[in-house]
């Protein structure tokens, strides 16, 4: 009796595993094709049946592709934009989170709900007036125009507030009794306890910032300020870039988010499952 139950459980597990493996294979198929393709000679990219092992393996595709597509400047621009937006949010979201979590002031609840509402306001419905405002500021085709308008993360404020709420107020009060200024309390008491949350926030903001396409498309005019996604999209529309180069550049673009994922996988998955808001 017990043995047959054990057998049945093992066989269901085997079925589960088989289905999972099949689904994983389907999920990984496009990635495998992209990565192997980026290492192939051009004429093997579209070989049918798919040639999974490039012959010869051409790592030289990578430097060649970056050079042929002039991709180092866009990569640099993306690094600048992403790190600026991460830095802005690390500072401003934790400040605001501290303000919302540990202080009482008139209109606090309304203000916080207002911030929450921002998480549901997509750029798509404000892109036209936002462009007009940024144009009025004379910020079209500038770094500040590229960085500031889409920088603030409402999710970040919410996230930091939730986290700072869990820090016992006694710490804050004790420091205050010792005569620390409010800003010192923030820097010396709150921030050191927020490191795990700041890591998560940095990764989440970094991921979406690296991925941003619509706003750069609107605000960037020339080649100089083009971010990596913009330059990538242009490769496609120009249709002059050899396919194995396109694949190599795509892999390069995917490496930073992949590293971030490997580095902070637990935090990313946790924050997605807790809030469901990227």
């Amino acid at each position: 009796m017990a043995r047959s139950k054990w057998l049945r459980r093992q066989s269901t597990n085997l079925v589960r595993l088989a289905v999972l493996l099949a689904l994983a294979a389907v999920t990984l198929f496009p990635l495998a094709w992209i990565v192997t393709g980026s290492l192939k000679p051009l004429e093997q990219v579209f070989a049918i049946p798919v040639q999974w092992v490039p012959d010869p393996i051409q790592p030289q595709n990578y430097p060649d592709a970056i050079q042929a597509t002039d991709f180092s400047r866009p990569l640099l621009n993306s690094v600048i934009v992403t790190s600026s937006q991460v830095a802005i949010n690390l500072v401003l979201c934790s400040l605001a989170g501290f303000g919302f979590a540990k202080y009482r002031f008139r209109g606090r609840e309304q203000l916080f709900l207002g911030v929450l509402a921002m998480t549901l306001l997509p750029l798509q419905v404000i892109m036209i007036p936002l462009f007009l405002i940024v144009k009025g500021l004379g910020w079209v085709n500038t770094y500040q125009g590229l960085i500031l308008p889409t920088a603030a993360s409402a999710f970040g404020v919410f996230f930091m507030r939730q986290y700072i709420s869990t820090i016992p107020s006694d710490y804050v009060d004790a420091a205050r009794v010792d005569g620390a200024s409010e800003l010192t309390i923030f820097r010396k008491v709150v921030i050191p306890q927020c490191i795990p949350a700041l890591v998560t926030l940095g990764v989440m903001v970094g991921l979406s910032s690296w991925d941003e396409f619509l706003w750069p498309l609107i605000v960037v005019g020339g080649r100089e300020l083009a971010t990596a996604p913009l330059a990538m999209a242009q490769l496609r529309s120009l249709y002059q870039t050899p396919f194995h180069f396109i694949l190599a550049v795509a892999v390069v673009m995917v490496i930073p988010p992949l590293l971030a994922f490997l580095f902070a996988q637990r935090q990313i998955i946790q924050s997605v499952s807790q809030t469901g808001i990227k």
């Binding site: 689904l23 994983a24 999920t27 496009p30 990635l31 992209i34 991921l207 690296w210 991925d211 396409f213 990596a228 996604p229 990538m232 999209a233 490769l235 496609r236 396109i246 694949l247 550049v249 795509a250 673009m253 995917v254 988010p257 992949l258 971030a260 994922f261 990313i268 998955i269």
Partner: peptide, 15 residues
């Protein structure tokens, strides 16, 4: 299964 959600969506659209 989760990894496709974080990869650059522009790079994925092109490829």
């Amino acid at each position: 299964f989760f990894v496709p959600t974080i990869l650059s969506s522009v790079a994925m659209a092109v490829t």
